[in-house]
Design a protein around this nucleic acid. Structure first.
Length: 324
DNA sequence: AAATAACTCAACCGCAGTAAA
DNA sequence: ATTTACTGCGGTTGAGTTATT
């Protein structure tokens, strides 16, 4: 974490401070009782540095009242609160955190707290919950940055089962909820359907169904329980629907693409110029394949949540969790 | 075990405001 | 009133460290 030593044209040293230089600076200030003029300090103290460099070294590192070590949870909360009121006024914020420098707080904000807020679905600039388009734009990134491909969705179920939910899991739930809220809200404005709910269901189901296994075709659902698992009423081999976890694990990438596609199709997201050519092609591909295919092979009624067949129970459960 | 990517944070840069000449 | 010197602040950099592939 040190820069290679270099010299300005003036001959003054730059870069990392040596223990000897530190000691000279400490000795001088302790002897004088204060730093006095930073401009003249280096010459008198015998340092080949500019005054600015000395001031920075003292205020950010050598000052005896500087607190070292990890930020506590209380400090984190205080920084977030103060930042929501003051913005990037690091020196002001640092006055409320004894022993912490503005530089240290700024670094901690940029490397830790910003990410933390983003994960919680909170915009680090406005400190408001992000239900905006940025969420959608960043969704693929969020998915891929998850520790495993289904971890974004898993907490949904864990939470309803009353299992412990840590901050990150909670954040992911909020992100997912916010995403769907945006999608459904926007879809209700669509003129393509006279029934906003039906259209919302269509969007949501279409989103998921592009990767769904084929619908089971039990002719008589009351008898289905007597059939051996994996067998239809006609004796055909039927694929058992995978759990939502398996689905999410296998299709997280496709889900994110679908979200992107629907956000674009609803004019919620302007066609982005900073997405890659591959991503653009993905959107086109999705438009031409899974989405249209699903639309054509399922009637609108069949796509309504309430009308899902019992054989789709695992999907219904999954959708219930996110479609509150 | 090696290569690569991501992260961390001390230090630097440049601008703005203020005081002194 | 203008110029110069100085200080403080926020943004950015980049070498070292750690994690991941």
């Amino acid at each position: 974490m040190v820069r290679s030593p270099s010299r300005e044209e003036t001959g003054l040293k730059k870069g990392p401070w040596t223990p000897e230089e530190d000691q000279k600076l400490i000795d001088y200030i302790q002897k004088q009782g204060s730093h006095g003029s930073w401009r003249h300090l280096p010459r008198i103290a015998g340092l080949n540095r500019c005054g600015k460099s000395c001031r920075l070294r003292w205020t950010n590192y050598l000052r005896p009242d500087i607190k070292r070590g990890k930020f506590s949870e209380e400090e984190e909360k205080l920084i977030i609160n103060l930042h929501s009121m003051l913005g990037n006024k690091w020196s002001l914020i640092s006055t409320k955190l004894p022993g912490r420098t503005d530089n240290e707080i700024k670094n901690y904000w940029n490397t830790h707290l910003k990410k933390k807020l983003l994960l919680m679905g909170i915009d680090p600039v406005t400190h408001r919950r992000r239900t905006d388009l940025e969420l959608l734009a960043n969704f693929p990134k969020l998915l891929s940055s998850s520790s495993n491909s289904c971890s974004l969705i898993n907490p949904l179920m864990e939470n309803t089962l009353g299992l412990p939910t840590d901050t990150v899991q909670l954040a992911r739930i909020q992100i997912m909820q916010a995403l769907l809220q945006v999608l459904l809200k926007a879809s209700s404005f669509s003129s393509s359907s006279s029934n906003p709910n039906a259209y919302s269901n269509l969007v949501l189901n279409n989103l998921l169904s592009s990767s769904l296994p084929p619908l089971q075709t039990f002719s008589d659902s009351s008898n289905s329980s007597s059939l051996p698992p994996g067998t239809s009423a006609f004796g055909e081999s039927v694929q058992t629907p995978p759990s939502y976890q398996d689905f999410a694990a296998q299709n997280s990438e496709n889900i994110s693409k679908q979200l992107l596609f629907y956000s674009n199709s609803n004019n919620m997201l302007e066609p982005s110029e900073n997405i890659s050519v591959d991503q653009k092609q993905d959107q086109i591909d999705l438009n031409e394949t899974s989405a249209t295919k699903s639309m054509s092979t399922r009637s609108l009624d069949a796509l309504n949540l309430s009308d899902l067949d019992d054989s789709d129970l695992s999907w219904k459960d999954f959708l219930d969790q996110i479609y509150w």
